[in-house]
Amino acid sequence: MNKTVRHLADGREIIYFDDSENAPPRDAQDARDLPAVAPASEIRCDPLTGEWVAMAAHRQTRTYKPPADLCPLCPTRPGKPSEVPEASYDVVVFENRFPSFSPHVTGEPTTVDGAGLVPVAPGRGRCEVVCFTSDHERSFRELSEARVRTVVDVWADRTAALSELDGVEQVFPFENRGEEIGVTLHHPHGQIYAYPFVTPRTERMLATAAAYRAEHGRHVLGDVLAAERAVGTRVVAEGEFWTAFVPPAARWPVQVQVVPHRQVGDLTELDDAERADFASVYLQVLKRCDALYDRPLPYVAGWYQAPRRRDRELSWLHLELFSVLRAKDKLKYLAGSESGMAVWVNDANPEQIAERLRAAA
């Protein structure tokens, strides 16, 4: 894989990752007249829960559902410049023009209204866009295993780079797919958030893992993985180094965890064989998901990685995919119990979800 770093007209970094043997040199210039990036991100800590919330009012003006011929993620064409100056690409990563977190925000930690009650700090971090292919009409499911392997290498590359930025505590690569999820750009792409704090979900998982290890001397996800592989009732796909299964306490009408058989903290620790096997297993999962309702499944898929600076021994890398679609034309809404009290009610049990996914193949 060949990696080329360039810059866009407003100074943002763009990085080309080429896996094609005859890829051209990446020397196209961004000819757009862009204003300087002026993010205004900040984070505030909820005094009742201790959780950080990001404020990014500048994102209100971000691109929203443009026509396909004006897609900002497609390669640049004559008279139609985009975020990618080249006429084609394999995989490309660039800094988000409307980031939730940015290394360029200024200011010092303080409190809201100077009252000392609600901590507030600059939202320093970084947000990147990852385009999986230059083909606007494809989806991740339609990528080759070789291309998925390239994407895994890109995720690992960016995890390593973003983890070295000042103030970054956790790196989260993810993909949102489908309008029902809230996607406003239909080109096949994902994002990477480099957070200035450890996320609430991760904090909860780390605390659970610590308590389980103190009692049993083992990692909780390792024991869950072993149990799922032994019983097989909820297993959806399996390879030499990865198993995909519906979690035994699934919250969503479609939910799959893809877990490596070896405990690693993040994507950078995966070896070549594990990266290749993930590509095979994950494509099986996506094909089953799209066959479930005989339509492209809207989903969120994200990597749960270790915090950069602590508790790595309590972390076990895994990917989780979930969908809000509970039937071909019905959505699961997060109503009072889920939204208000975070108590989930699922309309299907995990065994049924797994059986439907296996049958969908």
Rank of each mutant, 00 (worst) to 15 (best):
E13F: 01
I15E: 13
E42R: 13
P35R: 06
R32N: 09
P47Y: 05
S20T: 12
E21A: 15
Y16H: 13
R12S: 12
A28D: 12
R12I: 08
T49V: 03
L8R: 15
D19W: 04
I14V: 11
E42P: 02
D46W: 03
A38Y: 00
T4R: 13
R12G: 10
N22E: 14
D30C: 06
A31W: 11
R6N: 14
T49E: 02
T49A: 01
A28F: 03
A31D: 14
G11R: 07
E51M: 03
P39G: 11
L8W: 04
T49D: 04
E42D: 06
A9W: 04
E42A: 08
E42C: 00
A23V: 02
E42V: 00
N22D: 15
A9E: 05
R44T: 01
L34D: 11
D19C: 05
A31E: 15
N22W: 06
S41C: 15
P35E: 10
L48I: 00
D46T: 04
E42H: 06
N22C: 07
G11I: 06
A31Q: 14
G11Y: 07
L8M: 15
C45S: 04
K3F: 01
H7E: 15
A36E: 14
C45K: 15
Q29C: 02
T49P: 03
P35Y: 03
L34K: 15
T49Q: 00
L48S: 09
I15H: 08
T4L: 08
N22T: 11
D10G: 07
R12L: 05
A28E: 10
N22P: 05
R6C: 12
R32D: 06
S41K: 10
C45E: 14
C45Q: 15
R12F: 03
P24W: 02
P39W: 01
D19Y: 05
K3A: 10
P47E: 06
P35S: 07
R32G: 09
P35C: 02
A9Q: 06
P35H: 04
E42T: 03
V5P: 03
R26W: 02
D33Y: 11
D18Q: 06
T4M: 09
G11K: 04
D10K: 07
G50T: 11
D30V: 02
V37H: 08
D30P: 07
A28T: 03
D27P: 06
S20P: 07
S20N: 13
A40K: 12
A38Q: 11
A9N: 11
A23W: 01
G50I: 04
I15Q: 10
I15A: 12
I43T: 11
D30G: 12
E21K: 09
P24K: 11
D33Q: 13
I14H: 05
A23S: 14
E51Q: 14
D10L: 00
D33W: 10
A23G: 14
K3W: 07
P25F: 00
A28W: 00
G11N: 10
E51F: 07
Q29L: 03
S41Q: 08
D10S: 08
D18T: 08
R44V: 03
I15M: 12
A28G: 08
A23L: 01
P24Q: 07
I15Y: 03
I15K: 11
A31F: 10
D19N: 05
C45A: 02
A23Q: 04
P35F: 01
G50P: 06
D30Y: 02
